[in-house]
């Protein structure tokens, strides 16, 4: 039986909306990104360097190790990032996110196993990218 025209139209409209907005609920992605940022901050607060490194994106981890000359769990704790506080704002676009906390701003990227911290300890600069203490190369 041929598909009714309204169903074809509805399918096309849904595909167009998905194309514009990206797959998945935006709220779900915002929540997942802020949870990943808070998990990173909690690992720093409790001095769990291994967990903090696990929350970093591979490129950021590599750069941290390269620039400090120490192993990642020690290097990430030595950065002495500001205490995070509560989540103030989360922006998610595609597979990139910015999470603004009371005491810090983090940038994250989506990976198959969840959101990872790309940059932390970030301070805004007018008309320029954020100045970040920890970031990829």
């Amino acid at each position: 039986m041929p598909m009714p025209q309204w169903r074809i139209a509805a399918g096309c409209a849904a595909a167009a909306v998905l194309t514009i907005t990206g797959c998945g609920s935006l709220d779900e992605r915002r929540t997942a990104a802020s949870e990943a940022a808070l998990a990173f901050e909690e690992a720093l607060r409790t001095g769990d360097g291994a967990a903090a490194c696990e929350a970093l994106a591979p490129g950021t981890r590599d750069e941290l190790v390269k620039s400090s000359g120490a192993l990642c769990p020690r290097a990430v704790l030595e950065e002495e990032l500001s205490p995070a506080g509560t989540v103030r704002r989360v922006d998610v676009h595609g597979r990139q996110a910015r999470v603004r906390l009371a005491g810090d701003t983090l940038f994250l990227a989506g990976f198959d196993d969840g959101w990872k911290v790309v940059a932390a300890g970030c301070e805004p600069r007018p008309e320029q990218p954020y100045d970040c203490t920890v970031k990829g190369g």
Partner: peptide, 13 residues
Amino acid sequence: AAHNERRLQQLQA
């Protein structure tokens, strides 16, 4: 959305 994804990738607001 695409422009903002690139901006976030470049650590921009």
